[in-house]
Write a protein that binds this DNA or RNA. Structure first.
Length: 414
RNA sequence: GUGAGUGUAGCUCAACCGGCAGAGCAUUGGACUGUGGCUCCAACGGCUGGGGGUUCAAAUCCCCUCACUCACCCCA
């Protein structure tokens, strides 16, 4: 028996419809807010991600699906931002630009709750705005979207990780503080400090966290410009009416972030409880060969919401279903026409095999969750009506053929 | 890549200290030849994930392996 690859999922039925409802809501909502959908390739030249995400991250080192064809190295995209910027540069698009993407991403991680090897992301990017107002604005976008689809149990955490200038000075300061606490740190943290020093704050060990509680924070060591920017972001968030918690230990995994970073966390999710994460990345566009362009953006994992609040999410509305039970093969031409008539009014309609006994066909109708079964046989033909059975109430009525269009017009979905 | 837990019928799960592999739901048929669901009756369904070992005897104990789950690493 064939199995799906580890970390992939088959989506169908309600789960898929809920995901589609979230996607539809995102398209509608973000389009109204000026974000244009963009679709970039599922795979790119691997160098793009190596450059953008940062060569010291685990994603680049172990988690990218790489493959080589004809001496060229490609990679399945592990995230969306790099591709969007590449597309912006390559297509010579103009600023300011707002993009929405809804795509699958791929990372070769060990699966766990809320983490898959192929997963969906809904993301927005705002290119060409450097003012702190827009940091607040995209956070507002995320919050309003979550509220729109019915999410309640989430919190917003905010921090600033400054620019390379303040980060360099801060690194020395943090380094000298940690000198005296090296023995208290786990081996992971010692490695983190060398590779991507801000990430030590993500450590889950209590012994390490006790040290970091006392350590100097990047937030308190920003250069004047970064501090001013951060101050403004917080001020604007207050004016937007957005509740957030400042988390001075909040940092980000990807190398390209500057200044503002944030996460939306949702309850009931286990270890992977971040549903939206993002921030400002003012240096990435240049890094990828474009003009100096300040940018902000975030990505969301809709499957995580599915996991924790599936029952509360809107389901893409299901159409009422008709099932036609003809009583004899000589009625095939008639019932095919009847099907066209019903579908022409926008309803879902399935056919039973008119060669089968009526009992079997009604049973099938029930299995197919039909709202109505339309029965057509000798008596109906002779007297010019359809027998319409309401499957929920178990009642049936005769509807004259010339009145059937009117009947269809009055039918509502479940 | 590391650690822990779990694999028994299509699904959810039983099976005591090693002693005949079971139930509910689902499926199929019947009670019911122009009417599904509800009820009752019956049937179908298993290499106990796979391989090896210990034993008179293994779903049960041991080893290997595969899969799934959760957590670490990392991250949406």
């Amino acid at each position: 028996m064939y199995q799906k690859p580890k970390g992939t999922r088959d989506l169908f039925d309600k789960e898929l419809r809920r995901l589609q409802a979230m996607n539809a809501a995102a398209r509608d909502f973000f389009t109204r807010n000026g974000y244009e959908e963009i679709r970039t390739p599922s795979f790119e030249f691997a160098a793009l991600f190596d450059r953008s995400i940062g060569t010291t991250t685990d994603i680049v080192e172990h988690e990218i699906y790489r493959f080589e064809v004809n001496k060229k190295t490609y990679a399945l995209r592990p995230e969306g931002t790099a591709s969007v910027l590449r597309a912006f540069i390559e297509n010579k698009l103009t600023l300011p630009a707002r993009f929405l993407y809804i795509c699958s991403m791929y990372r070769r991680e060990r699966p766990q709750k809320g983490r898959y090897r192929e997963f969906q992301q809904i993301g927005i990017e705002l290119l060409g705005e450097n003012k702190p107002f827009f940091d607040a604005e995209i956070i507002d976008q995320g919050k309003r979207y979550l509220v729109l689809i019915g999410a309640k149990d989430f919190t917003i955490e905010l921090n600033s990780i400054g620019c390379p200038d303040c980060r360099g000075k801060y690194r020395e300061k943090l380094g000298s503080f940690l000198q005296n606490h090296m023995t208290d740190l786990c081996s992971d943290c010692k490695r983190r400090f060398e590779r991507n020093f801000l990430r030590i704050f993500d450590c889950k060990k209590e012994t390490c966290q006790r040290v970091y509680d006392e350590a100097p924070k990047i937030t308190d060591n920003l250069c004047h410009e970064c501090a001013e920017h951060y101050h403004k972001v917080k001020e604007y968030l207050n004016q937007f009416g957005i509740d957030y918690a400042e988390n001075k230990k909040l940092v980000r995994g990807l190398d390209y972030y500057t200044r503002t970073v944030f996460e939306f966390k949702h309850g009931g999710l286990g270890a992977q409880d971040t549903i939206i994460a993002g921030g400002r990345y003012d240096l990435l566009m240049r890094e990828l060969g474009g003009q100096d362009t300040p940018c902000t953006g975030w990505a969301m994992g809709p499957e995580r919401l599915l996991l924790t609040m599936s029952e509360d999410l809107p389901v893409l509305d299901q159409k009422e279903t008709f099932y036609i039970a003809g009583m004899g093969e000589r009625y095939i031409t008639k019932i095919v026409r009847l099907r066209d008539q019903i579908q022409g009014k926008g309803h879902r309609c399935l056919l039973g095999d008119p060669g089968e006994p009526i009992k079997i066909q009604v049973k099938r109708a029930n299995k197919c969750n039909a709202t109505y079964t339309v029965i057509y046989g000798e008596d109906e033909e002779k007297n010019g009506y359809y027998t319409v059975k309401n499957m929920q109430l178990g009642e049936q009525q005769k509807v004259l053929i010339q009145e059937f269009d009117a009947f269809l017009a009055n039918v509502r979905g479940k």
